[in-house]
Amino acid sequence: MIWQLDFWLMLVLVMFAVAALEVKDLLAAVGVLTGYSFLMALLFAELGAPDVALTEAALGAALTGVFLLVSLFFLDRRSED
């Protein structure tokens, strides 16, 4: 466990989370959320939980993005609010 690596990963993680909430283009939001999941998987692996990291990488970074894209296909691309 390297606290410098943890610090920077968590900082970038918070930036990704805020960006996913703030961005108006939903396709970009899905991309940023996928990046958030990938960073989350890196953080889990670095904190010594490879099992959770494997789940997060396979489910969060791959399948959730695809499911959100499929739902986005039936919606407008721009956020209304």
């Binding site: 490879p50 099992d51 990291a53 494997l54 791959a62 399948l63």
Partner: peptide
Amino acid sequence: SPGGGFQGGVMLAASTI
């Protein structure tokens, strides 16, 4: 080792998707 039924199943589903 890390992994198991759920993680492997998610990977199989990812390959099919």
